[in-house]
Nucleic acid binder design. Structure first.
Lengths: 195, 195
DNA sequence: TCCTTAATTATCAAACTTGACAATCAATTG
DNA sequence: CAATTGATTGTCAAGTTTGATAATTAAGGA
């Protein structure tokens, strides 16, 4: 009947830009003006296509959680049947495929969610899901290892990975990445020997 | 001759409050008004005792770096001569002595410093110093271990520690802390066996 | 071409944040 | 007590950020 809707496209475009800003400046530092500039759009379009600031934040959180689950699932599906955990570590610490923005956004949202109980709950669940997914991989690869050691290894790898990605903004990648990956592999290897 | 100066005391009081706000909201979210409220002072006192926003941030960074070195030095001095690294891990992951704000402020400053080359350099140096200090402890304890493995262990412990502290705001402490500490100990133990 | 629908732009008001300064109050010394 | 120095308070202007709406423009169908 009339002009075609591009609201969905614009919405994604704006959320992409907002995500970049959140990763760079944190949630509180990611203003609508910066977001609009990053998107190459006028500020009123942010409101028109997504809503006010609160709705923008909620939309980002929901999209982040949905994508996160989705990508995690896709990732697990591509892993080989054997040595899944090692493959996962290879991928997590591969500078070519790694997505520094992912963890930076996660940390920004977690920091922000300290003042928002509902959001905090969601981020806590997301974190738990991340660690449990890693944990399950390791259980499959090392069925004989004791659960506490496996929890330690999954928590450790997650921590090392998050830290590397977060510090990527400031540190020269290799100086931290290489020893960090090695540390993750040491953790995995520790499960090989019968306890 | 006149009313005694309490500027130094007020300055510390204000920087303490600003630090709390930076940990909570990030640098960009830590406004002068929030800082003043946190300090229990009127906003103009912030300016009177420390200066404008830029000076406040610089003062916080300098104090953070100075304290950090100082406390790290003091910490190393109290470590026993043997098993220093393990004692360090015990301390880092001891919920009683740990200071979650410390790492949260560090991350906030690092995030912010992405847009400030001079500050980025300082934070990079701080980070390097932290890892090297840990590294030196481990070298002393495991002189026979190869340098690359030691670097991996120090980078890993640092990452796990930073991650635990950062997520402390959102995660129930024990569920992450216990496996994380265990992971740090696994890393240390991996250096015991001759390669 | 004309109409309809939606995207885009322009613009304004309100709230918030910062910077700055004058006026007032408090405490110590002579 | 008086004078002096500094802490404290009150206040205002400038700039920024957000919220909201009216006006304009663009794209397709009848």
């Amino acid at each position: 009947m009339a002009r075609p809707e591009i609201k969905e496209m614009r919405r994604e475009q704006i959320l992409d830009a907002f995500e970049v800003c959140v990763a760079k400046y944190g949630v509180e530092g990611a203003t609508l003006a910066k977001t609009a500039e990053q998107a190459g759009l006028a500020r009123p379009l942010v409101r028109h296509n997504v809503g006010n600031r609160e709705e923008l934040i909620n939309a980002l959180v929901e999209r982040f959680l949905a994508r996160s689950r989705q990508e995690m699932q896709a990732f697990f599906d591509t892993l080989p049947a054997n040595d899944m955990a090692r493959s996962a570590v290879d991928w997590l610490f591969d500078p070519q495929y790694t997505d520094t923005q992912f963890v930076q956004v996660a940390y920004a949202l977690i920091t922000f969610s300290a003042g928002d109980a509902g959001m905090a709950k969601k981020m806590r669940a997301w974190l738990k899901n991340f660690q449990e997914s890693l944990n399950n991989l390791i259980v499959d690869d090392f069925p004989q290892a004791d659960p506490q050691s496996i929890s330690a290894v999954s928590a450790g790898i997650m921590g090392i990975y998050f830290n590397v990605e977060t510090l990527h903004a400031i540190s020269s990648p290799d100086s931290l990445l290489i020893p960090s990956k090695k540390a993750a592999l040491i953790l995995l290897t520790s499960l090989e020997a019968p306890k």
